[in-house]
Structure formats: C-alpha cells, structure tokens
Design a protein around this nucleic acid. Structure first.
Lengths: 151, 151
DNA sequence: TTCAAAAAAGACAATTTTATCTTTTATAAA
DNA sequence: TTTATAAAAGATAAAATTGTCTTTTTTGAA
C-alpha cells in the first residue's frame, strides 16, 4: 500500500508531535526506540522530512527533532507525498500506464473508489489529530503491547 | 497497493478468459503481447496460477493456457491471494505488527475503511465480469492506446 | 575556544521484487 | 516412433527497497 519508509516516517512524526507540549527535542535514538523503527533508516527518513519542512531538526547538543506550530496541522498526506509521492493514488489497479474514465481498465471505476477512499483518509487526517489521539490514550504507535507479555 | 506480478497476472487471466468462447488456448508469447507484460515473468506467474487452479495449462503442441468453466466465476481476490497473499488487507496502515480495534494505531478505524473497500472490490468482482466488459468494448488491458498515436 | 552531542551526508550492504535465460518435461500430430 | 511445440523447472541477474556504518558538519555549553 505505502512503503515501510513512509510508515516509519508517519509513526516518528506522530510521536514527536505528541510530545510537543513538553517543548522538548528528541534524538534519533529516542524516536526510533519509541516507534519501533530501525534507527539509521529512520534517521534518513527524518532527515528527508526535515528537508521537506514536515518536521524541523536542529544539530548539535540539545538538538534533535521537533515539530513547529505551523507544521502541526498538516495532513498526513504531506508525509506520504514527501516519501512515496502521489503515484499510488493515481495508478491503475491493473498496472496500465494510462487508465482513466476515457481509457479505463475493466476495474477502473471500482478500484478508483477504493483508491480515493485511501487518499481521502490521508488527506483529512492531520498530524495534530493523530498526536492528540495518542495522548488521550487507547492508541499505539509501537509494538510494545502489554498483551504480548502473555506470549 | 498490489504487486506488479499480481497486476500482470490479473491482466493475463482476464485476457484468456475473454477469449474463452473461441475455445482456443494461448501461449505465453501471445498472452504477454496482448497484455503488455514481460514474457518470461508472465510465464512464471501463469505457471503459478495454474498450480493454484486459477487457470489451466496444457503442455505440448496445441497446448497453452486457457480457463475452464468452473474457474470463470472466481472472484479476482483469488488471483491476488494466490500471488500476493491476503496480508495487504490485514496490515496496519502505520506498519504495526499488531493493530486491531482492541490495540489500534491512531489511524486504524479510518484506514480499515479504505482497506476493506479495496478488499471488497476484489471480492465482489469476478473474472467473468471483467472478461465480459472487455468483450463489450470500451475497456482495455494493455497500453496500446489509440490516443498514444498522437504523441 | 574547546569539546561533546546531535543531525547530515555519503558509501555501502542486505533483502525483496522484478525479470531473463537455459534446460527439462509433457504432449499431440505426422 | 520421431519431431516439433509448449509449459515447467531451475538458475541467474537486474533493479528497487530497506537497512547499516562511517565521516563530516553544526551547534550549544562549559
């Protein structure tokens, strides 16, 4: 659906956003641990998201990653777009290079509905919303499940 | 969304199904040409779909691939399941190993709606339906677009 | 001004997916 | 029974994605 890089990126951004009120910055090690993502790979992703102004970083001691006010109300699609691009939301369900209502594959109409539903989800959901849900409790962005203790 | 292998597979199956009335078999070369897919790769895919009883093949002269009556009313999800498996329709939108209504990621509910819509599309659409649409005209399974002549 | 901490940058490696090529097996007709 | 044809099987290769490691740059505090 979307790449692992993108999923790591969204989780990392949500985590950073959820801690904004504390006014702290977080380094890669902390972020990667909190969202169960590979450290070095996540570093690359966040570095890229900083370039794309999705989040902000500061080098040096007391540096790290944080999110600025103007960045908090971005839709999640901004993260997806930065990392994966928008092609998933335009591509043909059967892989045709060209597929639209004027030159449709046999699945076009139905597939488009599902594809648009996914796009809509990413468009209408903001970083702030997900961060707030996380803070309210009952939602998770890592695999450190209490239930897993039973294994 | 789904793999290229899977898309090639669906296109190939629809093509073969659309020609069923003619009672012919088609070899890899013909099929690959008709659906604009790499020949050797498509061979592997169809070989696999034969093993999974999605289509049928016969070796030797006058052999090739064809679809049997009992195979024609399969939903497209059978092809997806054989090649990609069902994991896309179960996976978390943010990549968590475990994500459900009891242990949801912050996007769970919204993502599930879109994911289910996609699953539904593949479940409710049959090979026969797509083959018929193709035969009725106005739908395409290759990139040989007439409009492309204008380039 | 020096030092330590952190991200940035660059090179590289592993894995997965996509793709090709060669050899073997099955089959139908002559 | 031979021959030609087509899929099956197996080995490899190319490309894309995921992941790691090392070096460089930035920056704040002591």
């Amino acid at each position: 659906m979307i790449s692992k890089a993108c999923k790591y990126g969204i989780r990392a951004v949500i985590f950073v956003a959820s801690k904004k009120t504390e006014g702290l910055k977080f380094n890669i090690k902390q972020i990667a641990r909190e969202v169960d993502a590979p450290e070095a790979f996540t570093a690359k992703i966040l570095q890229f998201l900083n370039k794309n102004h999705v989040i902000t970083s500061l080098k040096g001691p007391y540096g790290g990653f944080f999110i600025e006010d103007y960045q908090l109300d971005q839709p999640i699609i901004n993260i997806v777009n930065a990392i994966d691009g928008m092609s998933v939301f335009k591509e043909c369900g059967l892989g045709l290079k060209q597929c639209s209502s004027v030159y449709p594959c046999p699945m076009h109409d139905q597939y488009k509905i599902a594809r648009d539903a996914l796009l809509n989800t990413f468009q209408k959901t903001s970083i702030r919303q997900l961060a707030e849900q996380l803070n309210e409790g009952g939602f998770y962005i890592n695999n450190q499940n209490v239930l897993a203790e039973n294994i």
